[in-house]
Simulated scan of single mutants.
Amino acid sequence: MATRVQLLSRTAAASLLGLALLANTACSRQDAAESESRRVTLVTVSAAAEARRAPDIATLSTGVLTLAPDANGAIRRNAEQMTRVVAAIRAAGIAAKDVQTSGVSLNPDYQYLANRPPRIKGYYASNTVNVTVRDIGRLGGILDALVATGANQINGPTFDIEDKDAVLDEARGKALDKARARAEGYAKRLGLRVRRVISVDETGGRNAPGPVYARAVMMEQAAAGNASAPIAPGENVLGLSLDVVYELGK
């Protein structure tokens, strides 16, 4: 009787052990499946995009360079001409905040002769201002008025977009679309899917300025009494690059 009870006990124990092994195997398989489902692949893609807009502001540098036999005369003559130039700028409707002095200088004009030390034969005085024009359509007329009132130095214009945020947002959206499409391509080839964005890193925001009309041509046309100097603002380009990290998985 004792022997039979021992056999039953051993059989029960073996059965329990078998059930425990089966349970452990099932758990191991479930853990493996869950681990596989949690396994992720990270992919980093780069994308660049641009957006174009017609510029709405222009900046230029203008001023007066005068020559006189003495320093006081050069400064005085320069101040008289520059006063007329600034008055023309204000008369053109340019706000005071858009006019800023960029340089005032006084330099000797040397005469060089063979075997003799250089001597000062006069003085150059210069005064220049930076001007922001917010109505590009009037830029040609403004340039004409500057030359007509005594400006003999003009550099520019350089064209720009005052509010860049909307343009950059457009470029940003295009870059994100490109990045997502590339991530989807990687995922498809790997038999995975795009789960989520891990990070976005933005660089750039570059600005390619519009064309600059040659200073000499503008002054020559204005001095000849031609119609307003032709201005071609073209388009400005704003662009940026994105590095986007995506999580891929089953």
Rank of each mutant, 00 (worst) to 15 (best):
V217A: 14
E184D: 11
G210I: 01
S241W: 08
N115L: 12
A32G: 03
A26E: 06
E36P: 01
Y186F: 13
L113I: 09
K97Q: 08
A216C: 09
E184M: 12
T11V: 08
Y110H: 02
Q100G: 07
A48G: 13
N127R: 14
L240T: 11
L8T: 13
V167P: 00
L8I: 15
I94K: 04
V212N: 08
A71K: 10
Y213P: 09
R84Y: 11
Q221N: 13
P233W: 00
K97C: 03
T203P: 01
V99D: 04
A148W: 03
S9T: 10
R182I: 14
V244R: 00
R172T: 08
T3V: 05
D160S: 13
E247T: 01
S228P: 00
R52M: 05
A229H: 02
M219Y: 07
R116N: 13
N207E: 09
A26T: 02
A223N: 08
R195H: 06
V244L: 06
N115F: 06
L146R: 15
R180Q: 14
T101D: 07
N107V: 12
A23D: 04
T41Y: 04
A214I: 13
A179S: 02
A232H: 07
Q111K: 05
R39I: 02
A227W: 13
R29S: 10
Q221S: 14
G205Q: 13
D98P: 01
V194D: 10
Y123N: 09
V167N: 02
V147C: 07
L42G: 10
V85W: 03
N115R: 15
A229W: 01
N152W: 05
N152M: 11
P117S: 14
L139S: 06
A216L: 15
G103K: 01
L168I: 01
Y123Q: 09
A227T: 09
R206Q: 13
S35H: 10
N107K: 11
